[in-house]
Simulated assay, not measured.
Amino acid sequence: MIHEVDDILKGLLTRGAFAGSDVEVTFDAPTRDWAARRNAPTIDAYLYDIREDTTRRQRGKMSLRDEQGITLKHHQPPRWFRLAYLVTAWTKRPQDEHRMLSAVLHTLLPKEILPPEDLTGTLAGLGLSVPLTVSGLHNEARSLADIWSALGGELKPSLDVVITAPFLAFPEYRVGPPVTEGLGVQVRGAGGTPDDGPTRFQSAESVELAKEEFAKRNGTAGRTVQERQK
Results as ranks from 00 to 15, higher is better:
Ile147Ser: 00
Lys10Arg: 15
Ser102Leu: 13
Ser21His: 14
Ala103Lys: 02
Arg57Thr: 01
Arg99Trp: 07
Glu212Asn: 13
Glu227Leu: 12
Glu154Trp: 03
Asn139Gln: 10
Leu108His: 05
Pro94Cys: 07
Ser21Leu: 14
Gly189His: 10
Ala17Gln: 14
Thr107Phe: 07
Gln95His: 10
Ala40Arg: 12
Gly176Thr: 06
Ala221His: 12
Pro198Ala: 13
Ala150Pro: 03
Gln229Thr: 12
Leu137Asp: 08
Pro177Ser: 11
Leu72Gly: 03
Gly69Ala: 08
Glu52Leu: 00
Glu227Trp: 09
His98Ile: 12
Gly197His: 02
Lys111Gly: 02
Pro77Met: 02
Gln76Ser: 09
Val5Gln: 04
Leu155Trp: 02
Gly69Ile: 07
Asp196Cys: 06
Asp146Ile: 01
Ile8Asp: 01
Val130Cys: 01
His98Leu: 13
Arg15Asn: 15
Gly192Glu: 08
Thr71Met: 03
Gly192Ala: 04
Glu67Arg: 10
Leu137Ser: 05
Phe170Ile: 03
Val104His: 10
Asp7Gln: 15
Leu128Ala: 09
Lys216Cys: 11
Gly197Cys: 03
Pro110Leu: 06
Val87Arg: 01
Val134Trp: 03
Ala103Met: 02
Glu67Phe: 05
Gly219His: 11
Leu132Gln: 01
Lys216His: 13
Asp53Lys: 00
Ile163Tyr: 02
Ala29His: 08
Ala210Leu: 12
Val87Tyr: 01
Glu52Asn: 00
Glu97Arg: 09
Pro94Lys: 11
Tyr173Glu: 07
Gly121Ala: 02
Ala210Glu: 07
Gly127Trp: 06
Arg79Ala: 10
Val25Asp: 15
Ser63Tyr: 06
Thr31Ala: 05
Tyr46Glu: 04
Glu212Arg: 15
Ile8Thr: 07
Val25Tyr: 15
Lys10Glu: 14
Glu212Leu: 15
Pro194Leu: 07
Gln58Cys: 06
Ala150Met: 11
Ser143His: 04
Ser149Cys: 04
Leu126Glu: 09
Ile70Pro: 01
Ser143Trp: 05
Tyr173Ser: 04
Glu181Gly: 04
Asp28Thr: 12
Val207Ser: 13
Asp118Ser: 08
Pro115Gly: 07
Ser203His: 11
Met1Cys: 07
Ile147Leu: 08
Phe214Thr: 11
His3Val: 13
His98Asp: 13
Glu154Ile: 09
Thr193Ala: 13
Leu151Gly: 02
Arg56Ser: 00
Pro166Gly: 04
His138Met: 06
Val5Phe: 05
Thr42Arg: 01
Thr133Glu: 05
Lys216Asn: 13
Gly191Asp: 11
Lys216Trp: 13
